[in-house]
């Protein structure tokens, strides 16, 4: 797909510009390109769905929308092996720790797509006593896909945006976690795991 056809996301364009301005070493830059090519073309989802959006995610895998074309069909049930988490559905108080834990269990580099209005802001359940109003307070979100539920086409577009975002990342000295495990746990204490 020609890149120009996709020049519709100002945020990513400005990100690319900023990165290009600073300039990169030739070797490191080439390696980065190779790694980013691999990463952006191989984003495996975690099988994670709570409600209606999850069913549209199933449709996304089916013949009509066929996400396998892009290589996204390798849905892993274990978070350790997945690359991104599609938060498809409402996240309620009781589910929030579970979702956070799943996010923590994802191996770096990891991404989150907030899919559907419930995951973005609470959606139709804004007035509820038991719904987290948007998952941004719980996990960092890379891409928001609006809709109730979003159509599969919208989901494809959302994951493609994620793919483009990955393409402009830097592997060397960039996004990856620099902290050692002990430091990380000191800064982010998880109850019950410190023993």
């Amino acid at each position: 797909m020609p890149y120009e056809a996709w020049k519709d996301n100002e945020y990513i364009e400005s990100l690319v510009k900023e990165l290009q301005d600073s300039g990169t070493n030739v070797i490191v830059g080439t390696l980065d390109n190779l790694i980013n090519w691999g990463r952006s073309n191989s984003i495996w989802p975690l099988t994670f769905a709570t409600s209606c959006c999850g069913i549209e995610f199933v449709s996304l895998g089916a013949a009509r929308y066929d996400m396998a074309r892009f290589g996204w069909e390798v849905a892993r049930a274990s978070p350790r092996q997945a690359d991104f988490m599609m938060v498809a559905g409402t996240i309620v108080h009781r589910m929030a720790p579970v979702m956070r834990r799943l996010y923590d269990q994802l191996a770096e580099p990891k991404y989150v797509i907030a899919c559907g209005s419930c995951a973005i802001s609470g959606g139709p359940f804004k007035k509820s006593y038991h719904v987290a109003m948007g998952i941004e307070d719980i996990v960092p979100v890379d891409v928001f896909v609006p809709g109730c539920p979003p159509r599969p086409e919208a989901m494809i577009y959302g994951i493609m945006q994620l793919s483009r975002k990955i393409k402009v990342e830097k592997f060397f000295g960039g996004v990856n976690r620099q902290e050692k495990q002990e430091e990380f746990l000191k800064n982010h204490p998880v109850p019950g795991v410190n023993d």
């Binding site: 190779l34 790694i35 090519w37 691999g38 990463r39 073309n41 191989s42 290589g71 390798v74 350790r80 690359d83 269990q105 191996a107 770096e108 580099p109 592997f171 990856n176 976690r177 495990q181």
Partner: peptide, 17 residues
């Protein structure tokens, strides 16, 4: 090249201890 991209990705994915 799909599985080659997968391999590149998986090679540099974090090994969780």
């Amino acid at each position: 090249l799909q599985s080659i991209a997968d391999m590149f990705k998986i090679l540099i994915k974090e090994l969780i201890s």
